[in-house]
């Protein structure tokens, strides 16, 4: 389809039916009374739940820290707390990004620039999240056996063989999936930013 054909389809595409009104006085009154809830809202439940879980887990490890009787376990405990706090911060940053005030009066290109920049930042945060989550998985595994079995991991036969083989496989597939999932979008976003940069400079 060339541009002229696209125009033809565009002109003939679906408009709202004549007899239906898109907006009425009643709807304006509802909007004014804030009965309508904007979808450009600052709520992101998964991130909030994630932050709460991370902080509760860090708190739990802190309370039972006295049970960790070797330097190795204490190291794993400190690492887990640090990772959980860092993950909370990463989630908080994602949330903050979503909370940046919306200005719909900007030119479209300016909005796109913000959109693309935030998208790239979001991808960076996602990458950090993936690596930290894997490290957390390892450190939590070490702690769990002590907390629930009362035995150090070094005393459990085959633990290292299984946990690391599965862990490695998991990381391998997970990272490949993440890379494949984001590659195209990432590339498109970078191209869009370059495009915007070029036309803003010439402006």
């Amino acid at each position: 389809m060339e541009l002229d054909e696209l125009k033809n389809t565009w002109d003939n595409s679906n408009n709202p039916p004549e007899q239906q009104q898109l907006i009425t006085i009643k709807m304006i009154d509802q909007m004014t009374q804030k009965k309508y809830h904007s979808k450009i809202k600052k709520i992101a439940y998964p991130e909030i739940i994630g932050v709460i879980i991370c902080l509760i887990s860090a708190f739990f490890i802190g309370i039972y820290f006295y049970k960790l009787d070797t330097t190795f376990l204490q190291g794993a405990g400190i690492m887990s707390i640090l990772l959980l706090v860092t993950l909370s911060i990463v989630s908080f940053l994602s949330l903050r990004q979503l909370n940046i005030p919306v200005d719909v009066n900007r030119p479209y290109a300016a909005t796109l620039k913000i959109f693309a920049t935030q998208k790239l930042q979001f991808f960076k945060l996602q990458k950090i999240n993936a690596v930290l989550s894997y490290l957390l998985l390892v450190s939590i595994l070490i702690l769990m056996s002590k907390f629930y079995n009362g035995r150090a991991i070094s005393e459990i036969k085959y633990f290292w063989i299984y946990s690391f083989s599965f862990g490695y496989l998991f990381l391998l597939f997970y990272s490949k999936w993440v890379a494949k999932y984001y590659k195209k979008t990432l590339q498109q976003t970078e191209e869009l930013l370059e495009d915007l940069q070029q036309y803003s400079m010439n402006n």
């Binding site: 709807m27 509802q30 909007m31 009965k35 309508y36 809830h37 904007s38 979808k39 450009i40 809202k41 709520i43 992101a44 439940y45 998964p46 979503l98 919306v102 719909v104 009066n105 900007r106 479209y108 909005t111 796109l112 959109f115 935030q118």
Partner: peptide, 19 residues
């Protein structure tokens, strides 16, 4: 602009009261 913001939040849907 709203269409772009909607893209940004489309995966973070919240329940709304339709007008």
């Amino acid at each position: 602009n709203v269409a772009i913001y909607q893209l940004k939040v489309s995966k973070k849907r919240v329940l709304t009261i339709p007008i």
